[in-house]
Computed example of a mutant assay.
Amino acid sequence: MNKPEKLSDAQRSTALAELTAHGWQVGEDRDAISKTFTFGDFNEAFGWMTRVALIAEHMNHHPEWSNVYKTVKVTLSTHDVGGLSALDIAMATKMDRLAG
């Protein structure tokens, strides 16, 4: 498996334009993106988290997240590179797709 690399300015600009259009926010205090997902109830939120966890394990890239009832708050950043990498963009895209 290739070691992730921090996004270049051009890659970052392109990726963030797409993700911010879907509700992702750029971190103010660190090089990360975050989003709050709201589901119909706890079961739906936890089911989504379970599906994402299986994908994250396969990608070997795990989100920072918290769940309260039907709300899941997610932060993505690649610790190995000290900021955003293609792994974060791929994970965010997969999360959005699974959330519908």
Score class of each variant (00 low, 15 high):
M49N: 10
A92R: 03
L98F: 13
T93C: 01
A17G: 15
S34F: 09
D31I: 14
M49I: 13
S85G: 05
T78D: 05
L7S: 04
N2F: 08
P63N: 08
A45D: 05
M95R: 00
T78F: 07
G47P: 01
D9T: 03
P63H: 00
R12A: 05
G82F: 11
A56L: 06
A15R: 00
V52W: 03
A53S: 11
K6V: 09
A21G: 08
S34C: 15
V81L: 05
T75W: 08
D88S: 03
T38M: 06
S13V: 09
G83W: 05
K3N: 12
A90D: 15
L54E: 11
A45R: 00
K3Q: 11
L87I: 03
G27H: 12
G23H: 13
D88T: 01
A99V: 07
G23F: 15
K6L: 12
Q25V: 09
D9H: 11
R97N: 08
A10D: 12
W24Y: 09
E44A: 12
W65M: 13
D9I: 06
A10N: 10
L76N: 01
T75D: 08
Y69Q: 11
E5N: 13
Y69A: 14
A10E: 13
A15K: 00
R30G: 13
T71I: 07
L84K: 02
D80I: 10
A92P: 06
T78G: 05
N43C: 00
R30H: 15
K94S: 13
G27M: 06
G40W: 07
A21S: 14
N2M: 12
